[in-house]
């Protein structure tokens, strides 16, 4: 049985195709049209697996763009999809931290892999990928280079949680000669503290799995581990756990 999961986020659109015991993945920028992004992913996955669109038995769509894909048999929230995807990869998972482009969320799972509680950031970019992106722009580097550029020996504390104020704070620090690496370490700590407090509010329980585009950043993982005092696992393909969950749920729905 062939099923497809789409996770259309604010920054990136992700797709996972489950076909003949194989997992095919694609990620592209969402751009201005979530519908086009989804269609492009479907085309790309179909050609990767060398199948026809008609071969797909079922599709589930999640993420902020979920409502625009009428072709989907069902839309499911990112929360349920991440839980399904991560629990498939790590059956012992109890806490998922997912940091994406515009929101960060913490999901608590029962031993059976069911969502028992969750928390999401309010309407504010603090502790999200957007926060790091704005900061990277101001520092003149690509967001993907933040992690290797951090200098833990010169970590400074960034006090502002607000993206706009943190940016001006950072500009002031640069003006007074603080090192870029130290500022970046401070930014990672700031995200770690913000999201770490969300985890503590729900109650920290191991195993902790860190997903979403921001999980690629080793500096944020380090900061979260420091904040929570526990090891955190970042899955290979940490961006794809939502789409994987969607594809698995599409399969579950058929059986």
């Amino acid at each position: 049985m062939t099923t497809l999961g789409l996770d259309i986020g604010s920054v990136a659109a992700k797709g996972v195709l489950l076909h003949a015991e194989q997992r095919y993945t694609t990620v592209i920028p969402t751009g201005w049209s979530p519908l086009d992004a989804g269609n492009n992913i479907i085309d790309s996955l179909v050609s990767k697996a060398n199948i026809e669109k008609e071969d797909i038995s079922n599709m589930v769509v999640t993420g902020y763009g979920r409502v625009v894909h009428q072709a989907a048999s069902k839309t499911v929230t990112e929360i349920k999809c991440h839980a399904r995807g991560v629990a498939e990869l790590y059956p012992e998972v109890r806490t998922i931290i997912d940091i994406g482009g515009q929101d960060s969320k913490v999901i608590k799972l029962s031993p059976e892999g069911k969502v028992i509680d969750f928390s999401m950031n309010d309407k504010c970019a603090a502790g999200t990928g957007r926060f790091l992106q704005v900061m990277a722009n101001a520092l003149g580097i690509d967001v993907s280079q933040l992690s290797e550029a951090e200098d833990l020996t010169e970590t400074v504390k960034i006090n502002s949680m607000c993206t706009v104020f943190a940016e001006s704070e950072m500009v002031n620090l640069l003006a007074t000669g603080t090192s870029r690496g130290g500022i970046i370490a401070g930014l990672h700590d700031s995200v770690g503290q913000r999201v770490g407090s969300m985890v503590k509010r729900l109650g920290l329980e191991a195993q902790v799995i860190f997903t979403g585009g921001v999980a690629i950043n080793q500096g944020v993982k380090r900061a979260l581990e420091k904040e929570l005092g526990t090891n955190i696992i970042v899955p290979d393909g940490c961006q794809f756990t939502g789409a994987l969950g969607a594809a698995l749920l599409a399969r579950d729905l058929l059986s």
């Binding site: 929230t77 990112e78 069911k114 028992i116 969750f118 309407k123």
Partner: peptide
């Protein structure tokens, strides 16, 4: 109505639970 989408995700997730 600025946060309708983000409210929807939370409420839908609770209904899924």
């Amino acid at each position: 109505t600025s946060d309708i989408e983000s409210l929807k995700v939370r409420i839908e997730a609770v209904l899924e639970m």
